[in-house]
Simulated assay, not measured.
Amino acid sequence: MGQLTILLIKEIYYPILAVVGVPANLVTIVTLSRGNCSLSKCISIYMVAMATGDLLVMIINVMVYYIFSYHFPHSFLSHTPVCKFILYMITVSLDLSVWFTVSFTFDRFIIICSQTFKTKYCTERTAALVITMFSILIFIKNIPLFSAYELEQMINKLWWGCRPNLAILSSSFGAMFIWFHSIWRVWLPFTLIVLFNSLTIRRVLVASRVRRRLRGHSSENQSDSEMENRRKSIILLFTISGSFILLWLTESVSFVTTRLINTNKYHGDYTAPAYIATETGAMMKFLNSCINTLIYAATQSKFREEFKKTLKYPWILMEGLFKIDAKTGVAW
């Protein structure tokens, strides 16, 4: 029974995550795209991009791979070309989610710490360009993954299944690519997010002290709209960055330890600490793609109001479609 504990948790966890995460990210995208959340167009683009990346993670990684492919091992999803494409998109979707978060963090860093550069960088055009360039780069970067997997078996002249291409993965190129992949997806983003946030904190503390001195002669009860807006922006930034680091940390540490001490072979032992750490890390990192909607709702009152309106809109639409005219008795 103990051996099946982690498997049972996965059976329950991933369907719940998909049921919550897919609609949450869809509604978030619609809500932000309507542009009524009192956010600049620049930050809205980054937030829509993050929600889109998270939605891809929910659909491809959680639904397609951990639910459909797992429960229907003999479906068309197991055909080798389809299987390779799924594995490719698994990596692409995670990379997009991660680097859209880094892009958002850098944009907030610039707008708070560089008063001269922000007018040129923190624009709608630049945000769209950054998101587009990162997307293209990530899709190109992961092309070698197609050769990292090979045909598992031939059934009725059909290519079936995917397995790691040991000849490539065990080569020096394969080892370098695996480590580069880990650094690109986790350790470099971690470093950049911590660096940008540290500099942002320093800038905010200095600016707050100067502003308090300049406003010392004013009434204590007088509101400071600029500082209030900055406070909300900082809370949003740090909450998103902090949740990303915390939820990805277990997966990152387990990857390094299993690689360094060569414990990535479990031989079907589901109680092996390396296996449990790896699966726990995976569950936590996927949770990161479900939690941003909650963060937006908790930190942005206007987003919370618009999110509720978006949720109510389908019901209002249905009510209008099925409303019966009292005089004609015809639905309109």
Rank of each mutant, 00 (worst) to 15 (best):
M63C: 15
K312Y: 12
K141Y: 15
L55R: 02
Y121M: 14
K41L: 08
I16T: 08
E150W: 05
N142H: 14
F322I: 11
A167Y: 10
L195V: 11
V206K: 14
R209W: 09
G320I: 11
M227R: 13
T191D: 06
T52W: 06
L87F: 11
L151V: 12
S171L: 03
L32F: 00
H267I: 09
S93P: 04
T280W: 05
A331N: 12
S38G: 09
D325G: 04
N165Y: 02
N264T: 09
L246F: 06
I6G: 02
V130T: 07
T293M: 02
R203F: 08
H181T: 08
L94E: 09
V22Q: 02
L237E: 01
I111L: 08
Y70H: 14
K308D: 08
I235N: 03
S38F: 08
R34K: 14
L7T: 10
F180A: 10
T91D: 10
M283K: 02
F109Q: 00
K141C: 11
N288P: 04
I178W: 07
P15M: 00
I316F: 08
V256S: 08
E152T: 09
V98W: 08
L188D: 05
M283V: 02
L321C: 13
L145R: 10
W315P: 06
V204N: 10
V102P: 02
T257F: 10
Q115L: 10
R213M: 13
Y65M: 10
K302P: 08
S243A: 11
F117L: 15
W160M: 12
N262Y: 13
Y313N: 14
T263Q: 05
T28W: 01
T310L: 03
C113Y: 00
D95Q: 11
M63I: 15
L7E: 13
F177E: 01
I324H: 10
Y13D: 07
N36S: 09
A326M: 12
P273A: 15
M1T: 13
S252K: 05
N165M: 03
V57T: 06
I155L: 07
